[in-house]
Design a protein around this nucleic acid. Structure first.
Lengths: 195, 195
DNA sequence: CTCGTCATGTAAAGCGTTACATGATTTC
DNA sequence: GAAATCATGTAACGCTTTACATGACGAG
């Protein structure tokens, strides 16, 4: 249940409405966590009913500003310090590379170049954010800056790996040429489909 | 729907039963994708009913070996080359760091050290796999090796960042000392809770 | 004959995404 | 007064995880 703690954390930083929380997800947490409004509003209602946040203000368009309560603060600290983080990760890009043996050299090259472009742009956007942070150093963005730093280190490393992978994929294809993994019969059909 | 294509890809590499597919997920794809048997078996049944795989053999304990069909091969190639990869990522470790402003220096230090240990062990396991691959170079593991290489590059980079983050967190705490973000009243309560 | 592992599945609950619905306020 | 944006929510569907159930085979 990371979403509820993400909401608690954001509200601990600064109270806000569901709408602004969504914006904050998109701006500061885009590459770390994401969610939809359809998940935010019910979760805020649940957090309120559990007393972890309170509706502290009503604004113009029947907007509700929520503020974290003392027990909400206790809860997020408990989560941070006592709950083992879920470290399982999924990376569809890597999963795909795993199956590149099914493609020819040219297609692999095209796909990897596309990835490189994507990550080049992502790095550029991180650098832009970093520039802005440097221009107006907001006390309080310290840990956001630390997370951003990871993006600034990750992207160049990933790009280098993609380039390495592209070169290596060519070599892999050359060495397996004429000996494809798929062409020999792999299993004798012993049973028959019965449904 | 990455799971179905992961299954197709694994079966394209080598036919197998649901049980061995689960093992292969754990061995080769652990850090890339994961799934449970409760997801594998229904998905295999669906893939078979769609003609993308066939039950090619029956073994001892009523085990069913599946093999990818020509249309299954077409499908996974289509997925690889024509479907835009889902690049959205979630990283709970980074999400947590974002909220470290709620903790004191000592706790942050403890948490970061724990992460460093975890990733140290993960890197060691990757290095072990790499050693084994080098010892018995299996043609066909080429792209698995390429994916592994990312792990061998990622882990040291992440560790360095964790160390940097730890040092920087200390600095961040010192500069915000006596000016915590949470202590001033953040919102006037204008409305009242009505449910 | 017992234990471990191989092997396949179902059920239920939780989490996440997509689609849809509605209305209020500000800006031009 | 029209359009953009602010703002909150529901419904349905799909994916993922946890828990449970069952049984076959092989080793000792």
């Amino acid at each position: 249940m990371s979403l509820r703690h993400a909401l608690l954390g954001l509200l601990a930083e600064k109270p806000g409405t569901g709408y602004v929380l969504k914006k904050r997800f998109e701006q500061s947490l885009a590459n770390v966590w994401s969610t939809e409004t359809s998940q935010i509003y019910p979760e805020l209602a649940r957090l309120e009913s559990e007393g972890l946040i309170i509706e502290s203000a009503r604004g113009p368009r029947r907007s509700k500003t929520y503020t974290v309560t003392p027990s909400g603060l206790v809860e997020i600290r408990r989560w941070l310090t006592e709950i083992e983080p879920n470290r399982s990760s999924r990376n569809e890009a890597l999963l795909r590379v795993f199956f590149y043996f099914l493609l020819d050299e040219e297609e692999i090259n095209r796909l990897i170049r596309k990835e490189i472009e994507y990550h080049r742009d992502l790095l550029a956007s991180y650098e832009e954010i970093e520039k802005q942070l440097r221009a107006s150093p907001n006390i309080g963005d310290q840990f956001g800056r630390i997370v951003l730093e990871w993006g600034l280190r990750y992207e160049p490393a990933f790009k280098e790996w993609l380039e390495w992978a592209n070169a290596r994929a060519k070599r892999a294809h050359r060495t397996t040429e004429g000996a494809p993994r798929q062409t020999r019969p792999v299993a004798k059909v012993r049973g028959t489909k019965s449904a």
